[in-house]
């Protein structure tokens, strides 16, 4: 059972330091939201995201995963904004109170292109970055180990607990629980089954914390890490470039306002 979406490959993108990828993702988000015109998103898409996706070899999975999320969002966005945009004057098509306007479509394009960038870039990060590596890298960059532990264990335990929920459900069916009927009825019969799971989770957390102490989790020593997180001078430079670009993007509208 996969515990994350990580697509295990050996490409350059996969081997980048997770922090580099995280900085790039954050910078991209800042840039496209700070400069709200559709062609900035288009440039980011063509210059950064598409090449990275192709190099990573995870492009296929990226496309299939993101389309599932994007298609409904974009459909709703274009229909709602295209037809009901308040300031729309250039009417392309009209039906009763609904009118399709150029302004509406352009607005939808602006918002839509940013959402596309946001979703594609985030999923690409998840696909090409092992969550464990991300945690180790963040710890190396000063994140508290307790915080790193909480994040990684949540990522890991959610599938483990959903497995358990699944088997509790199976066990009750094996005792004659029928799941036939309306979705409402199904939820009604399934809800009481969750209580032992939640209760069990609390006992588990208590016991697990004992086990963690036995493995020196409270040790004052400076932590080391088994798997080295690769980093290069080039990547360090790259990270600063992304930070500079993001700051530039924030400054642009302000400067333009002053001028």
């Amino acid at each position: 059972m996969p515990t994350s979406l990580f697509d295990n490959r050996k490409s350059v993108i996969h081997r980048l330091n997770p922090v580099t990828k995280l900085v790039a993702l954050l910078a991209i988000i800042v840039i496209v939201f700070a400069i709200p015109v559709w062609w900035v998103s288009a440039i980011v898409l063509v210059v950064v995201i598409v090449p990275a996706a192709v190099i990573s070899g995870s492009g296929g999975r990226l496309l299939s995963l993101s389309l599932k999320i994007l298609i409904p969002i974009l459909l709703v966005l274009f229909i709602v904004q295209g037809l009901t945009f308040p300031g729309g004057e250039t009417i392309l098509w009209r039906w009763g109170v609904l009118k399709l306007t150029t302004e509406g479509l352009l607005f939808a394009l602006g918002v839509g292109s940013r959402i596309i960038v946001l979703i594609l870039a985030s999923i690409l990060l998840v696909l090409t970055t092992h969550p464990g590596q991300l945690m180790s890298a963040l710890s190396e960059h000063g994140m508290s180990p307790k915080f790193a532990y909480i994040i990684s264990s949540t990522l890991q335990l959610i599938p483990a607990f959903s497995d358990r929920a699944n088997s509790i459900l199976l066990a009750q069916q094996a005792r004659g629980l029928s799941l036939k009927g309306s979705p409402f009825r199904r939820i009604k019969v399934m809800l009481p089954l969750l209580s032992p799971l939640v209760l069990g989770m609390f006992t588990d957390v208590e016991e697990r914390s004992t086990a963690m102490e036995a493995r020196a989790f409270g040790s004052p020593a400076k932590r080391t890490s088994l798997i080295p997180v690769p980093d290069t001078t080039l990547q360090r430079v790259l990270r600063w470039v992304f930070v500079a670009l993001a700051l530039g993007a924030i400054a642009t509208p302000i400067l333009m306002g002053i001028l």
Partner: peptide, 30 residues
């Protein structure tokens, strides 16, 4: 402890790193 499920830290994504968890906490060299 009695329950192996709870002995496992939950923070590590491979058995290899799971085994090293305690040593990482103690700051043992890689």
């Amino acid at each position: 402890i009695q329950s192996p499920f709870n002995q496992i830290s939950g923070a590590k994504f491979t058995v290899r790193e799971e085994l090293a968890f305690g040593l990482e906490n103690q700051g043992v060299e890689r």
